[in-house]
Design a protein around this nucleic acid. Structure first.
Lengths: 136, 136
DNA sequence: CATGCACCTTCCAGCAGGTGGAAGGTCAAG
DNA sequence: CTTGACCTTCCACCTGCTGGAAGGTGCATG
């Protein structure tokens, strides 16, 4: 199966699939004409990657999950630990975004928002106490 | 004032401050020895940038906010519009993260997490059709 | 058979927003 | 005079792709 069809089945752009090959996440066969030739197993792997990426796992985490997936003797606790760590990360990001939103909302509420030049938002950015949690 | 001191006052790494200069967000003077020499105004600008970045504004948005900040005839409504658009973005990101978290939590809850190899998390990532551990 | 078009290939460049390190200049203390 | 903390520039690298150029392939239509 050509890359275009594989892309449709996995809901991934062809470019992304080639990129995944470049970083050794997948190794499709080649047809006689040089085209990549994806097997059912390859499609499965790509779908696995698409789902894991959409859940927020990084490429390296996907690599780990794939190797766990293909290890007959893995412990489910190992997979669970990866997922729980990811939940923690997602929680931290949510908290940070909520803090950002609270500050932005306060700024917007304090701004009259008309044609006058005086603006509490800019005043706050220029010297207020708007530091709300590091974002890095 | 040298870059190190400016960095401390603005809560930004020196590398980042040099980067901001490279992309024309700031233009410090130079001392006789070639060192960058930051004025009070420069520090102010850097602090403005640090706060705006920590609120999630992109570099280009920061550039716009800075030019609004320095425009005596701006309308506060313009600034308010930028901030409100950013609130919308933050909201969208929060919603997406909450959806991720819900799925991850469901997966983790369904996984016994012991030494056995069967794992609902991997089964779900694989599409629910594959037998866990029987792959390849 | 030519033509056109969609598809495939490789390779190179670039996005945001920095970070790391090498190689070297400067300055104050001991 | 030496040490160490600064500072300088420059170049490469990070994540996770994405865009585009230049060219090969496959198939339908005229």
């Amino acid at each position: 199966m050509n890359i275009g069809e594989a892309a449709a089945l996995a809901s991934l752009p062809p470019k992304t699939i080639r990129y995944y090959e470049e970083i050794d996440l997948i190794h499709p066969a080649r047809a006689g004409n040089g085209y990549r030739d994806y097997s059912e197993t390859d499609i499965h792997r790509l779908q696995f990657l698409q789902r894991a990426r959409s859940l927020g796992f990084t490429i390296e985490e996907c690599r780990m999950l794939l190797s766990l997936y293909e290890d007959e003797h893995r412990a489910s606790a190992d997979v669970r630990a990866v997922a729980m760590e990811k939940i923690g990360e997602v929680d931290r990001k949510i908290a940070e975004l909520r803090s950002m939103k609270a500050t932005l909302t306060r700024l917007v509420d304090s701004c009259h928002g008309d044609a006058r030049p005086d603006c509490p938002i800019l005043e706050d950015l220029a010297g207020g106490t708007a530091v709300c949690g590091g974002h890095r």
